[in-house]
Design a protein around this nucleic acid. Structure first.
Length: 252
DNA sequence: AAGCTCGGCAT
DNA sequence: ATGCCGAGCTT
């Protein structure tokens, strides 16, 4: 005789996820944990998921699940609170405030975006401060070296190329190398609420009186104009990259 | 072999 | 208490 667990089982479409995803509640019938619910999700193609991490692994960048409450299947504003404490480490603060000399960070998945470094601290404090996340952000030694020998690479031909015509160095004695280094530093530094626009002042004013007109928060290139077709092109790139990534993950 | 279920560790 | 996942059990 089988233990035919005629368990309560409800399965519905989940509104907080893309179309086709369903959420299932299963009540445990026996054992110490009898009465508790297990929550499962099913992708449109029928794959079963039994935890949020598993969901995140599968969906990756496709869907932002930071506010997704796995248990209830809804968007939960309280989850936002929890995450913001961690916030992204702000490499600019407390080091040098000049954005044009911020070190590039390691180019891997975002959770690993930490500089390679030593941490200096007094021994007795270490344990306590580590636990409470109070210690000073680690700093990479000689990071300036990493700005040497930067080159543009044409993504189509995979060959070295000069600055694209849309990127124009600006400022006194600013060469294309200088502009490139400055631009790269900016790109590696994401600061909330500040986008990279380039120098918006007029070229002649900047060259003549940099002290007054140069914006130190922006890289040493002329104001960048982004057109609709630039945006569309970029969207296509992102889309095809996602498809490739998905295929790669599938084949694992 | 695949899927289901509950235990048990971790937080 | 709750979330996640291993592994024994069922199909």
């Amino acid at each position: 005789m089988s233990k035919m667990a005629k368990v309560d089982r409800k399965r519905f479409e989940c509104n907080a996820l893309p179309k086709g995803w369903t959420r299932e509640e299963v009540v445990r019938k026996t054992g110490l944990s009898a009465g508790t619910k297990d929550i499962f999700y099913y992708s449109p193609n029928g794959k079963k998921f039994r935890s949020k991490p598993q969901l995140v692994r599968y969906l990756g960048d496709t869907v932002d699940l930071t506010t997704f409450d796995y248990k209830t299947g809804k968007i939960n504003a309280i989850l936002l609170r929890k995450n913001r404490k961690k916030a992204q480490p702000d490499l600019a603060r407390g080091f040098r405030n000049d954005l044009s000399v911020i070190p590039p960070i390691r180019q891997t998945a975002s959770i690993f975006k930490q500089p390679v470094t030593i941490v200096k601290s007094q021994e007795c404090k270490v344990r306590h401060e580590l636990k409470h996340g109070r210690q000073e952000k680690p700093r990479q030694l000689f990071w300036e070296k990493r700005l040497e020998n930067l080159k543009f690479l044409n993504s189509e031909t995979e060959e070295n190329s000069r600055l694209p015509p849309s990127i124009k160095p600006v400022g006194p004695y600013v060469t294309s190398d200088t502009a490139l280094q400055s631009l790269v530093s900016s790109l590696h530094t994401v600061i909330q609420g500040v986008s990279i626009t380039g120098q918006t002042g007029s070229k002649s004013a900047l060259e003549k009186n940099a002290g007054v007109f140069l914006n130190p928060d922006q890289p040493l290139v002329q104001g960048l104009v982004i057109s609709e077709s630039d945006i569309r092109k970029q969207e296509e790139r992102v889309l095809s990259a996602r498809v490739k990534l998905q295929e790669a993950l599938r084949s694992l």
